[in-house]
Amino acid sequence: MAAADRDRAELGVVTADPGGVVAADRGRVELGVGIGWRAEIDLTVERLPGVEFVEVIAEGLRPGNLPESLRVLRERGVPVIPHGVALGIGGADKPEISRLRHLAACAEALAAPLVSEHLAFVRGDGLEAGHLLPVPRTRDALAVVVANIKIAQAELPVPFALENVAALFGWPDDELTEAEFLGELVERTGVKLLIDVANLYTNEVNLGADAREALDRLPLTELAYVHVAGGHSHDGVWHDTHTASVPESILDVLTELCARVDPPGVLLEWDDDYPSDQALSEELGRIRAAMSRAATRS
């Protein structure tokens, strides 16, 4: 066993194995640095050096007929995480069992170490919002979301992680901060956290919620992995578009996070206007640099 592996084993850390079956002490799964897999950049993702894991939008997958590119990545031992965008676990209704079964089927087809979704509501009374809307952070809402998460966990064969969203607005009667709300969810359900530092930044710019303060209060020991993405500023509003290079200010938030915890994985999201392979590779390099800045700072 290599020294580094031995050190990690002593720390109770395991790496996702080539088959994607993970038995992790303290539930930690080492992922590394990755990128969001999209059909438009499938060959790019396959040939980019240093891609240690990928995430795929679960709603676009057919578990019985996985894209060839994902099969190639799996054969190489690259973990693939199904990422849901339409479960609506933050809604007042119970999560739809069919959606959960689809997520479960995706996880099994990909031998995924975990499944992730958003802490958001996306529909109500039959109407689709078309956005990942923030959950009212009240005690009542907390109880509902806790129940929903437990339903999801019962259906899923792997650990479940929830992502903080970039809110379009804040509810006037919020009783808890986002960090407190997520902390309560983790404590009551054991759900893992997917922290999107770009969303923390977006909420800081648009809603005044201090990203560093949030990082201080979040239960980062339960971190599954991290999202990083670029966006655009327009009239003082930050648009989290996932279509541009990650600005230094968001990488700074990542550095802050890494100064507090060693994240199991960090993933670059890029959803449209894809730049060259070189540019994407450089983005991954910038992410690694931001992570290592935390080490040199501490």
């Binding site: 999209r38 438009e40 965008v85 990942l132 993405a229 999201e269 449209d272």
Partner: peptide, 21 residues
Amino acid sequence: GGSSCGGGGSSCGGGGCGGGS
């Protein structure tokens, strides 16, 4: 065929104004 069925990522993953995932 292959990869096309895995598509659809762009439209649902990305957010508009502040609505990203």
